[in-house]
């Protein structure tokens, strides 16, 4: 059982570093944004993983409308953490907002410079002073 979790966590860590590497080295801005989305998704999965509970039958944090006190006790002891899910929900929406604005900025950069390659933008802006 341990081996599977080692696999999962090492894949998450490797993906984090790979996407950071891509953001740093790829010159194209859209490629940078795509890899940034991967990066934020990996972080979100990490946070969700913190709230996961490894019991025999973990359950989704949803109950029905008229639970008895026994059902509530079982729900409390078997359900996964709802608070990290809420935080990730907020993070996804804010990430989306940031991503929308970044994409629009890239379009604006292309209108002004005629390229979205960061190296060429650097050259052109140096020429302009």
């Amino acid at each position: 059982m341990n081996f599977v979790w080692i696999m999962i966590i090492s894949c998450l860590i490797i993906t984090t570093f790979l996407s950071l590497y891509g953001i740093a080295t790829r010159p194209n801005m859209i490629k940078k944004i795509v890899l940034y989305s991967t990066f934020s998704d990996v972080i979100n999965v990490f946070i969700i993983l913190l709230g996961y509970r490894r019991s025999l039958n973990p359950r989704v944090p949803v109950l029905h409308l008229h639970p008895t006190s026994e059902e509530i006790a079982v729900f409390e002891m078997t359900s996964v953490d709802p608070i990290v899910q809420t935080l990730v929900l907020t993070a996804i929406v804010i990430g989306l907002a940031v991503m929308l604005f970044l994409t629009f900025l890239v379009i604006q950069v292309y209108r002004l410079y005629g390229t979205i390659d960061t190296r060429e933008i650097a050259k052109k802006s140096r020429l302009r002073g």
């Binding site: 059982m1 341990n2 979790w5 966590i9 993983l49 913190l50 709230g51 996961y52 509970r53 490894r54 019991s55 944090p61 729900f75 409390e76 359900s79 996964v80 953490d81 709802p82 608070i83 990290v84």
Partner: peptide, 15 residues
């Protein structure tokens, strides 16, 4: 590290 079997007190309070 593996996910733990008991969630945090705050989560249990919400649930």
């Amino acid at each position: 590290w593996i996910p733990r079997e008991v969630t945090r007190p705050l989560a249990r309070f919400v649930l």
